[in-house]
Design a protein around this nucleic acid. Structure first.
Lengths: 332, 332
DNA sequence: ACTATAGCTGAAAGCGCTTTCAGCCATTTG
DNA sequence: CAAATGGCTGAAAGCGCTTTCAGCTATAGT
C-alpha cells in the first residue's frame, strides 16, 4: 500500500510533482493522469493532511464555535438544528470541521482556536453584544462568518435574519387580532438577537399607538425563563391578553405557566414565539411564531464561509435570510 | 511578532532545537529555559500544528463520531449529554476534537475520517451490531474507543455499562413491587444496547418464573416509538401493569399514550426507563430508571482514548461504568 | 527552415517543526 | 591526574506535500 506521493510517483513512473498535479487539478496529459489515477485507486492512497497543510497553508478544516451561554445547552433545539445545517453543508463540500462548544471561557476558547493554527476559517454563533470571542477572532486574520450579529461592523461577514422587522411583524399580527395588552418576554440579556427583537416589538406597539412602557420583561431564551416570567406577570396582577416571547422555548415555558394559572390559549392570552423550531407546531395549541429556517441558516453560514475561502479578496459576505410569519392556533 | 521557531531561536540566542525542547519539555538549563519562555511570552508565539504534526506524527486532535441512526437526532438528550462530557474532558486535556455527525452513510464517514489522516485517535458512538464504520475504524491502525459495544471482540477498547445486568435489576424491581404483566419496549433494532437490555429483561422474568413470550415489543429509542408501541399495546387489548421502556425517551412517549388512554402511572401501569437523562426526574410522575451517567461515560471515553494514546502498547482499555437503579414515582 | 508558443514534466526549494546525533563543558571517579 | 560520566546544546536530517522554475517536446507561425 502506497503511503506517500513518492511511492505513487515510483509506481506510476512519473515525478512527485506530477502526482501532486493530478490530485490537485494541475495540467497533466490525459494518459499520464489516467495512469496516476489508476495507481491511486489501486493503492487506496490518502494524502497526508498535515503535510498538505504545511506546504500549502490550507487545511480544509474549518472551526465551528457554539459558545452557548450558561442557561442554554447545545441540546437546545436551536443549536442542534443549526449545527446539523452547518455540518451538512460542510460535509457536502468535503470540508472538515472542528467544533468548540462553550464549555470554557471565551478567552480560553479563543486561545484554543487560534492556537490550533490550522483552521482555514471559522463560523461563530456567539450571539452576544461586544463579545470578546467574536472580537478576538475578527482581529485575527482568520476568515470568520458570524451567525447572527447583523449589526456587526462593515467588514464582518454574517448570516442572519432581520429580527427587528420580524418581531415588528408578529407583534403587529397580535395587534391585528385585537389584542391590546401585549407583553414581551425578552431573549438572553446582551444577545444581539434579543435586543433586536425587543426593538421590533416596541416599534410595532408605537406604530399602533400603544404604550410599550413596562411591557418588556426579561427572559433568557430558556423554557424556564418563559415559565418564570409569565408566572410573575400573572402574580403581579397585570392584565394582559397577548405574550410575544423571545423564542419558541420561552413560549413553551409560558404555555406551562398559563396552563397552571388556568388561563386558556388563545382564549385568554394569545402567545407568539420566534424561531419555529421543530416542536413549535407540536404544542397545544400550535404556536404562532416567526420561521427563520434555522437549518438553512446553518447551511448558508457554511456556504458563505466556503465561498469566502475561495476568494478572500472579494470583501465581506452579508447574507440576510427571509423570515416568515407562521400563524397557528395560539393566536387564532 | 515571532512566527516560527527560528524567530524565537534568533530572539533568544539559542538554536531552534533548544526552543523546541523548551516547548516540549526536553532537558534545558533553567536560565536558558526562562529566557526562551520570556521570549515566547512576549511574542505571543503559537506553534504551527501542521508542522508539528508532520514532524512528530501526532496532531493533538481526536475524532468523535456520533453516527446517530435515522429516527434519532443528536439533539437527543443522550447524545448531547454524551458529547458534552467528551468535549469537557478533551478540552481539559488541551486536545482538539473533530466531530462527525451521522449525516452521511457509514462508508462515507469512514472514508472521510481515514482521509483526514491527521487524527490521533477516535471515539465512536455508533451503537449498532456489526457496524461497518466501527469495523472499518478498527481495521485501520487508529486507536479507537467505542462507547457501548461492550461485546466487541477481545482487543477493542470501550467504555460501557452492563446493560443486561441493569435491565435485569430494574425489571426485578418492577416484579418486586408486585407487577405481574410486564412488557418491554425495546431500543433501536440492531443496537447493541437494545439487544442487551432485552436480554436482561427476559432473564429477570425467567428468574421470577414469569413468561417473557410476547412481552417484548419493538421500539427505537425515540419518544414516538414509545408512544406508538404503548398505544398499540393498549388497543390490542393486552392487559399489562408495567412497562420497561428501552430508554427514557421511549418512556416519555409511553407516558403520553397512557395518559391519552386514561391510564394512571403508577396506579394502573408502572413505567420504567433507562439512562436517567435530565428530563427523567421532571416527568410527572418522576420516572423510575437506570442511571448510567451519560456525561460520565463521555468523560471516561475521552480519558480512555487519551490514556491509550499515551501508551499505545499497553493493550485495550475496557471500562465498565456502574449503573444505579433510580426508583421514583412511576413505579412507587 | 527558424523562432515563438503552448503543453507537460521533473528538479528542487521549502512549509515549521521534532528528533537523532555528536560535541562541548564541567564534574566525578579510580 | 587521566578517564569517565552526565547535562546541555546545536547541526542537520527529515516528516509528506505544494509550487516555482526551468527544460523539454511538439506544434504553430513567419
Amino acid at each position: 500500500m502506497a503511503r506517500t506521493l513518492d511511492d505513487l510517483a515510483a509506481l506510476s513512473g512519473v515525478s512527485r510533482a506530477t502526482v501532486s498535479r493530478v490530485i490537485n487539478g494541475g495540467s497533466v496529459s490525459p494518459e499520464t493522469r489516467q495512469r496516476v489515477l489508476d495507481v491511486i485507486e489501486t493503492t487506496n492512497y490518502r494524502p497526508n493532511l498535515a503535510a498538505r497543510n504545511l506546504a500549502s497553508g490550507r487545511s480544509g478544516v474549518v472551526g465551528v464555535v457554539m459558545h452557548v451561554a450558561a442557561p442554554l445547552t447545545f441540546a437546545d433545539a436551536y443549536f442542534s438544528q443549526l449545527l446539523t445545517g452547518i455540518c451538512d453543508s460542510l460535509t457536502e463540500q468535503a470540508a472538515g470541521m472542528m467544533l468548540w462548544l462553550g464549555n470554557r471561557t471565551k478567552e480560553e476558547t479563543l486561545d484554543n482556536i487560534l492556537g490550533m493554527g490550522m483552521l482555514d476559517g471559522v463560523i461563530v454563533t456567539a450571539d452576544t453584544i461586544d463579545d470578546p470571542l467574536v472580537d478576538g477572532l475578527r482581529a485575527s486574520d482568520l476568515p470568520v462568518v458570524l451567525v447572527g450579529h447583523r449589526r456587526a461592523d462593515r467588514d464582518a461577514s454574517y448570516v442572519d435574519v432581520d429580527h427587528e422587522a420580524a418581531s415588528d411583524a408578529i407583534t403587529t399580527h397580535l395587534i391585528a387580532t385585537g389584542r391590546k395588552q401585549i407583553y414581551h418576554i425578552t431573549g438572553r440579556p446582551n444577545s444581539v438577537s434579543g435586543r433586536d427583537r425587543a426593538i421590533g416589538f416596541r416599534r410595532a406597539l408605537r406604530k399602533a399607538g400603544l404604550d410599550a412602557e413596562g411591557h418588556v420583561v426579561p427572559g433568557d431564551y430558556t423554557d424556564e425563563s418563559g415559565y418564570e416570567a409569565t408566572k410573575k406577570l400573572i402574580e403581579s396582577g397585570v392584565v394582559f391578553d397577548a405574550l410575544f416571547c423571545g423564542n419558541d422555548n420561552t413560549a413553551r415555558g409560558a404555555y406551562q405557566a398559563l396552563a397552571e394559572a388556568g388561563l386558556s390559549i388563545p382564549g385568554d392570552v394569545a402567545v407568539a414565539g420566534f424561531d419555529d423550531l421543530e416542536f413549535a407546531s407540536q404544542l397545544d395549541p400550535p404556536l404562532t411564531t416567526v420561521r427563520q429556517g434555522v437549518g438553512e441558516i446553518g447551511h448558508e453560514a457554511a456556504r458563505t464561509l466556503l465561498s469566502l475561502l475561495e476568494n478572500r479578496e472579494s470583501g465581506p459576505r452579508r447574507v440576510l435570510l427571509p423570515t416568515e410569519l407562521v400563524v397557528r392556533g395560539s393566536s387564532a
